[in-house]
Design a protein around this nucleic acid. Structure first.
Lengths: 341, 341
DNA sequence: ATCAAAACTTACCGCGCGTAAAGTTTTTAT
DNA sequence: ATAAAAACTTTACGCGCGGTAAGTTTTGAT
């Protein structure tokens, strides 16, 4: 600690008595140098606490180990959860993930893509904003960087799409709700940001027809990503006005359902699947907190593990050469029966 | 779009008929070049869609506009919320924030600090893991980069600490609970990751003594950051075993309280502040979802705005020269009375 | 001991940009 | 019109590292 701080690899090479290219080789792959050399280098690292500058490293590399992860809204626990899962898988695969959130802002999303270009990532996992996204910017970006689109699909961009089978989600839970009680009304935002919401509505309508029930969609106003608030306010209004034809409400997503539960509580309606309750409420997503609502929320859970694993694997396969055509993979969800419906 | 893609500033300078240093100057500050020049550059940018590589930019700059934000656990909505707020303020101040999460892992926290050194940030806002943090690594880092510590304090490191007055939080809500019903038991994790938890317990004990009541602390086992699960399981056990002496439970934080609410529901206990309920539950933090629990959670909310604003301002003042001594600022919380207590 | 393979060193260029010095052109003020 | 100031160009170097080619040393097997 007495000596001056090492500032670059050349200084470190000089002080450790090993040539710079060898040091560089070591940091690129510690096993690529002789054991004795490695030990000398590691001793010097220990002694001088040297770390190469990763941003300078990537500057002149043909292939970096950087991976970008972009989600539309990090304050949504669904995205924090999936991002965390993907992040971990990237680390395990020896890559350096960097996480970005578009914060619901298309301009910020485009800026992030520009930043990512500077980062020279080996690949990017992008969950686009959806409807609001600047598609041409995404398209341009996909031509420069191997990009895997997840969560919500935008045309046939990038190397592949990996997500959930939202159509199956809604059909599954609609079927369950119809079999176990009154057929559900569908509760959603009027202008959802995410294209998956449209799939879910369409699936609901189709399923209800198939099962021989009259569908009823209750769309509530509200912009942005504050779903719980929108669900609560819209839910209270809809309940007060008696806009639900049955005692069962299927929400377009869990966050809306959490708002709906709060609305029911506020309106003095007891939620639950047994006879002594006034209303049943179900969600969709398998939100991390859905098991801690009161009552615990019945929902269809994303197969987080399958989605994140397949997304990461597909990206890495593409990075490592095997280029096949664009493909879309959607995983089925699992019904999680809890007390709310 | 017909021409080949511009790869660097030199090519861009050539094609736009302006020297590279001037282009560089423009990107550093558009107003530092003549109006006519600026217009020519901007026309060329528009035409060729050129953006300088930000990582190469920062390579050789004396002062970058990078700011690092590190939180211990991004899956905790409290941290997503405060991070988002801080991020926005940095952007508004013309800086480029990059967000990192330690994911509860001290090794990852140290790695992030190394990464941040490479990034040459103008400053860093760090919410340390707390008890688990590698303090010597943080200390080293603080010597290299202007660092503001927020949320939980670690010694007197960095340029300053900004956070909440956790002592006041607990005193405030304990007082409220004592005045409005039975005095509260204190519900907490046995081995909390965050030092604020200890402050809250100490404050509870002190307040109870002051008000002339016998304190009772119920500590439940559990490691990690899955607070809702820990609160629910520990809460169920404690309720089943009748370990709460009064009908009022003050939880160490809102996430634990959310778990406690779920435990009460599971045990068939009605939660609320009126006579017809069996138990009162309160939290602390002002968690983003605390208003959507059933019943809505009574809590002490962080002054998110004040904390994030003061943190960012203090950092930028330090960056821009005015170096005063280390200071600690703690903002008071606001009691939010809802139905749960 | 011998020799080829493996590992290393030296030397040099490249990445994309910041920055400084010196000279040239343009603008502004008088 | 003239001079000073401002803005620009040219030139040259630096940041911290990757990567390659050539030559040198070390290794390990015979």
């Amino acid at each position: 600690m007495a000596e001056a701080k090492i500032r670059n690899m050349e200084q470190f090479a000089a002080i450790s008595g090993i040539s710079r290219p060898t040091i560089s080789k070591y940091f690129n792959d510690p096993d690529s140098v002789r054991r004795s050399t490695r030990e000398r280098i590691e001793a010097a690292i220990e002694k001088h606490d040297y770390h190469p500058n990763i941003y300078a490293m990537n500057q002149n590399r043909k292939l970096t180990k950087n991976v970008g992860i972009v989600v539309p809204f990090l304050a949504d626990p669904f995205f924090t959860e999936i991002a965390r899962s993907i992040e971990q898988r990237c680390i395990d695969a020896g890559y350096r993930p960097t996480l970005f959130s578009s914060h619901g802002d298309p301009k910020l999303e485009t800026e992030i893509l520009d930043t990512l270009v500077s980062m020279k990532p080996a690949g990017v996992l992008l969950a686009p904003l959806g409807r609001a996204s600047d598609k041409s910017a995404i398209e341009k970006f996909c031509k420069q960087v191997p990009t895997l689109i997840f969560d919500s699909s935008v045309d046939e961009l990038g190397i592949a799409f990996v997500g959930s089978d939202n159509y199956q989600f809604t059909e599954l839970i609609t079927d369950y709700l119809c079999r176990t009680g009154e057929p559900p009304c569908f509760f959603e935002m009027k202008t959802p940001a995410n294209p998956n919401a449209h799939r879910r509505r369409a699936s609901y309508l189709n399923a209800m027809e198939k099962f021989g029930y009259a569908p009823q969609v209750v769309s509530v106003p509200g912009e942005g990503w504050d779903f719980e608030a929108i669900g609560m306010e819209g839910g209270r209004a809809a309940l007060a006005e008696g806009r639900f034809n049955t005692n069962t409400v299927l929400c377009s997503n869990d966050r809306l359902a959490i708002g709906m539960l709060a609305a029911c509580y506020a309106e003095g309606l007891s939620v639950g699947r047994t006879k002594d309750h006034a209303i049943r409420v179900a969600g969709q997503d398998g939100h991390p907190f859905s098991s801690y609502t009161c009552p615990p929320l019945t929902t269809v859970a994303h197969d987080y593990k399958a989605v994140s694993q397949h997304a990461v694997e597909t990206l890495f396969q593409a990075i490592e050469g095997s280029v096949s055509g664009w493909k879309s993979t959607r995983f089925e969800g699992n019904l999680i029966m809890r007390d709310s419906a």
